[in-house]
Design a binder for these strands. Sequence first.
DNA 1: CTGTTAGCGCGTTCAA
DNA 2: TTGAACGCGCTAACAG
Lengths: 342, 342
Amino acid sequence: MVTIYDVAAKAGVSAATVSRVFNGIKVRPDMTEAVRKAAEELGFVPNRMARRLRTSSSEIIAMMIPDIENPFFTVMTRAVEDVARARGYSVMLCNTDEDPEKEQEYLRVAVSEPVAGVILAPSSIGTRLDLAIERGVPVVCVDRHAANVEADTVVADNLSGATAAARLLFEAGYRRVACVSGPKRVETADLRHQGWAAAYREANGAEPPDDLVIRTSYTVAGGAEATHRLLSLPEPPDAIFAANNKLASGVIRVLAAEGKLPPTVGLASFGGLPLVLLVPVGVLVTHLPARRLGEVAATMLLERIDGLKGPGREVVLPLVFGDEDEGIELIDGALAQTSRSS
Amino acid sequence: MVTIYDVAAKAGVSAATVSRVFNGIKVRPDMTEAVRKAAEELGFVPNRMARRLRTSSSEIIAMMIPDIENPFFTVMTRAVEDVARARGYSVMLCNTDEDPEKEQEYLRVAVSEPVAGVILAPSSIGTRLDLAIERGVPVVCVDRHAANVEADTVVADNLSGATAAARLLFEAGYRRVACVSGPKRVETADLRHQGWAAAYREANGAEPPDDLVIRTSYTVAGGAEATHRLLSLPEPPDAIFAANNKLASGVIRVLAAEGKLPPTVGLASFGGLPLVLLVPVGVLVTHLPARRLGEVAATMLLERIDGLKGPGREVVLPLVFGDEDEGIELIDGALAQTSRSS
DNA sequence: CTGTTAGCGCGTTCAA
DNA sequence: TTGAACGCGCTAACAG
């Protein structure tokens, strides 16, 4: 392994000078040149372990998400990576699987790594960040809040967004609108559930009945099963509000199989449906600002890594109506039309 | 920060003994006990940096993929993570964006990390792994080969799989079957292109004409644009072979918009279409064994990390026909039927 | 602005 | 079996 000493010897300078060159500290131009040349010829690569041991710092950001197979989170991750990379940081991805234990385990590993910072989409509203905070590792929560309020947080406006999305169904004339949401104690699932409930009260002037609510896992299978249950109710719903993209996917599959796609049974999907080919006519799709969430989270984290102090900040990103990337829109254009006639 | 010296002092032994205790090297029972107790009371946590500097090893696997937003790769990553985690390794995800420079940059970072090993889906057939190999960092290539044959490699059987998929179109009666594939010098794109060409020759007894081949980026937009070009040809194709899932997605969107979905224009997708809601009738979908690719790659890498020597191994995973997860199947069941009647 | 010196925390030789 | 001493590769302090 070629070290700074080898480079120093070849360049006829001291090891400290080599170190300075590689850390952007001012050195006489001719020496800088000699060092660069020697390093190039020897194929010198600085050893990060040694540097970290010395400086007790790293250039790794841990990104912890509940589901690597959900495009919402991978798009977010991609945005984090882009921002981090531009500043010389690498991203270590951890898949928590919505499992609090796995999440704590990853946090434990992360702080003993130690990573420069953590971006976390908490698996539950009970998620505690003490492990990281005690050790002074900056944490930014994204998509969901954690129990510790000291951490910066960036989320989408789930509550009013969900209300707006559900309201669209009522405005379209549906009355018995069901809600299929994620697990209890998962913040986004709770809030979207509440948002739907608000729209329900607003439209029907009554409390939403319990049998129209199904809380399940954020999976395609969960959405499918919930739909089966709802459709076999004595008094089945005339529309469904699906709280995330995977649930919506499951709902659509079952509706399609049963021949009850919109407008027979109305449907709103909270969260975009990436790579989806043909969205059936009349499905309301709410696009979440996944990329923006990641960008903002990464930016806030880098500020903390750079030493910014102060209380936890909170950013709530709005869901702009009508915009392809961040809004709510009615998909009923050429694609859906054509799919019907195929 | 509490070090082994603090623990040693408190336990009345030497630092070396503390080190031994924490590395499972035999030490007198009473001393072991004293060390454990002292460490516990002081809240001692071994410093990974120091350990790595000393042993020049880590428990991190670098996973480098060309497109984090493609479910094919995220499913693969998920599988790698599962296998790695079971052995106590973490996975660092790197998004190369099909960019050879970004890829080399990541390799540079990885070896100076140093990571325990690398799993890489090379961005091009020219990708060189010398950076890692010279330093003795094990590398496993997945999905595609790299220039260095020393590395273990696990791929799907692209050539014969593509031939088989394209052949299905000819067997369905199409004659002028076009090929939309990925960038040149990307192995999977090249092989699938060749596979299509073989099927074309076989069916038409003639060399496939150049105007029926479009090589573009592995993106939805690329697939869409290619389809536009093909459809506006003086003599347009009567079917399209799309070499990956994103391309197929773009093709379908345009076919749908033009009212030319199968069977008007035939279509085969090489690669599954995850989260897709309604696959139009008659689209032939080849499912790649993404999860299996990841599992095998991770397993092979761990073997190398454990010290296995010997020449580069190669695993080619077959595409089993008719199986949902790894085969080729005709999607024309209830979903597509229903989508037509909706 | 440069070189010399002294560790960062740990694992691993050697002697005892 | 144990402890003392050394060094992994680098950077922070100091002196020049």
